[in-house]
Simulated scan of single mutants.
Amino acid sequence: MTWNVRIGINPLSWMNDDLPSLGGNTLLETALSEGREIGYEGFELGNKFPKDGPGLKAKLDEFNLACVSGWYSGFLATGTVADEIERCQAHMRKLQYNGARVVVYGECADTIQGQIDTPVSRRPRFASEALWQAYAERLNAFGEHLLTTYGIKLAYHHHMGAYVESPADVDKLMELTDPGKVFLLFDTGHAYFGGAADPVALLKKHVKRVVHVHCKDVRAPVIARARNDGWSFLNGVLNGTFTVPGDGALDYEAVLATLKEAGYEGWLVVEAEQDPAVAPSYDYAKKGYDTLRGIVDRLSQVA
């Protein structure tokens, strides 16, 4: 029985938005042509993609690629729903024009994920239950707006250095938000780095809310050093905390089996921040694709 998932990739394997020096001279066309040659069906967006809907579609069409989704920097932890609704218009219209069904919502209020000299342990936290509840209510309102206005689901990205990082944070977010308005982007690498010794256990708790998946693997010894030595998120990236599926410590057979059993039918997106000078883009993108493709094909043969 064929499992109806698609395998995409984020351009981080070739170029990095947070650390522009990594792959900064790599052309977008290089990433798109190599990704298509490897077998990927679509790309998530990065800062080198066209900013308008028709321009983006034309560029992706050149390489017979789909628009998987795109990161959206939200500020609902401290801002208002009205401001977010106004700010998001161009991005959501671009995604809508290109047929994307989800948006990657990254909470960027007070985040330290882009501060190379700030230890990840200094991330922001909600100081009270009331602040958590108010945040959830704003997310519910914004998620409802995205669904009704653009037909796009808010896929919340738990992320190192931000308000929602640990398994307990993910549990809290899912408890307080409306399951019909706020959905979950499950990121295997951030789950592990955030404290989930077994990301599959966390996934199983919330798999019915998952509408998007970022597939990154982890180098467990490097993450242990990052925690013990107080590295920033970006220093962790530079030192190799993350890699592609099949090159690290995570059990992707179990991850994908959990998704299939739950009826997940979205994108599986290889997204592994690395220095392409150390981890050559094509080779690692191919390893990630081959790993996921092999598992998906095996699972498709299981009734």
Results as ranks from 00 to 15, higher is better:
Val207Tyr: 02
Lys181Ala: 09
Thr188Leu: 06
Leu139Cys: 03
Leu154Met: 06
Asp169Met: 11
Glu137Leu: 15
His206Ser: 04
Leu173Ser: 00
Lys181Phe: 08
Trp132Arg: 05
Arg138Ile: 10
His206Gln: 10
Lys172Pro: 07
Leu203Thr: 08
Leu146Val: 07
Ala162Gly: 05
Glu144Cys: 15
Ala141Asp: 08
His159Lys: 02
Gly195Pro: 07
Lys204Gly: 07
Lys204Pro: 08
Phe142His: 13
Glu144Ile: 09
Val182Met: 00
Ala136Gly: 12
Tyr156Gln: 14
Asp198His: 00
Leu131Cys: 13
His145Thr: 02
Thr149Glu: 05
Lys181Thr: 08
Tyr156Pro: 15
Tyr156Thr: 10
Val182Gly: 02
Tyr163Met: 05
Pro179Thr: 06
Ala196Lys: 08
Leu131Phe: 14
Val182Tyr: 02
His157Tyr: 01
Leu139Gly: 01
Gly180Ala: 13
Phe186Pro: 04
His159Asp: 02
Lys153Asp: 03
Gly195Phe: 05
Leu154Asp: 01
Tyr192Lys: 06
Tyr163Trp: 07
Asp198Leu: 01
Phe142Val: 08
Lys172His: 14
Pro179Cys: 03
Leu176Lys: 13
Glu175Ala: 07
His145Ala: 00
Asp198Ile: 03
His159Gln: 01
Asp171Tyr: 01
Gly143Ser: 09
Thr177Glu: 06
Lys208Gly: 14
Phe193Asn: 14
Met174Ala: 00
Gly194Cys: 11
Val170Gln: 02
Thr149Tyr: 05
Tyr156Ile: 15
Lys208Cys: 11
Lys205Tyr: 09
Pro179Tyr: 04
Lys181His: 11
Gly194Val: 06
Asp187Arg: 00
Thr188Trp: 12
Lys181Tyr: 12
Ser166Ala: 06
Ala141Asn: 12
Ser166Met: 09
Val200Cys: 10
Ala197Phe: 03
Thr148Met: 11
Glu165Met: 14
Val200Glu: 06
Lys204Asn: 12
Leu131Lys: 10
Pro179Lys: 02
Glu137Ser: 09
Glu137His: 11
Leu147Gln: 15
Leu173Arg: 03
Lys208Glu: 15
Leu184Cys: 13
Asp171Pro: 04
Ala168Asp: 15
Ala141Ile: 09
Lys172Leu: 15
Asp198Asn: 11
Ala136Arg: 08
Tyr192Val: 00
Phe193Tyr: 14
Ala196Asn: 14
Glu129Asp: 11
Lys181Ile: 11
Trp132Ser: 09
Asp198Pro: 00
Met174Tyr: 05
Tyr163Pro: 00
Glu137Cys: 13
Val200Tyr: 04
Val164His: 03
Ser166Ile: 10
Leu176Glu: 15
Val207Trp: 00
Gly195Met: 12
Glu144Ala: 14
Gln133Tyr: 12
Thr148Ser: 13
Gly195Gln: 10
Gly194Met: 00
Gly189Asn: 00
Met174Cys: 05
Tyr163Val: 02
Val182Ala: 00
Leu154Ala: 03
Ala201Thr: 13
Tyr192Ser: 06
